[in-house]
Amino acid sequence: MTATPTAPQWQQDVFRVLKEGGIRQIAYVPDAGHAHVIRSAIADPDIQDVVLTTEEEGVAVSCGAWLGGQRCAVLMQSSGVGNCVNMFSLLQAADFPFLTLVTMRGEYAEFNPWQGPMGKATQAALELMGIHVLRVTKPEETAEIVSAGLDAAFEAGEKVAILLSQSLIGRKKWERK
């Protein structure tokens, strides 16, 4: 743990924007693309890190945080969007602000066919449930788009998902060292 490799700049940008945007709870099911944000949340005394057993818990945690006056961001992988579908009703039924960051699988240089079906349906599933979808494809646009999504969620009360493209995250290395 002493020699943690430096995280990609775009991942550092994500955490910085969440922190500056007043996010106080980060609920997550881990993914390599979220690793820096999760590590940073755990290390930050002003942010509660909440590891979830399944992503729909994060939707509900986020609503509870807002009920209590805090902003929460939910981190998940595209497969987790499918786990959330009915819980997304909560966002619409009570008009909660919502911000999720979704690392994509099954769309670019994918090795694992099991990631394909949900990955390809992720954006449509979110939109079917009334969630506004933004997408980051280039590292240099990360800060701006995450910031735009955060403002839309917590200044306008929108429900926002920011998809972090698989091409941004890079090819998964399958051979262990």
């Binding site: 709870q25 909440v50 818990e57 509870g64 009920l67 006056g69 909560l90 039924a93």
Partner: peptide, 25 residues
Amino acid sequence: NYYLWGAMGGSTSIGLGLALAQPDK
């Protein structure tokens, strides 16, 4: 009181987010 009429399975997680946001309540 915050009543759910749906979102089955969500009450305890809502309680968690709320409890973390309001530690003095």
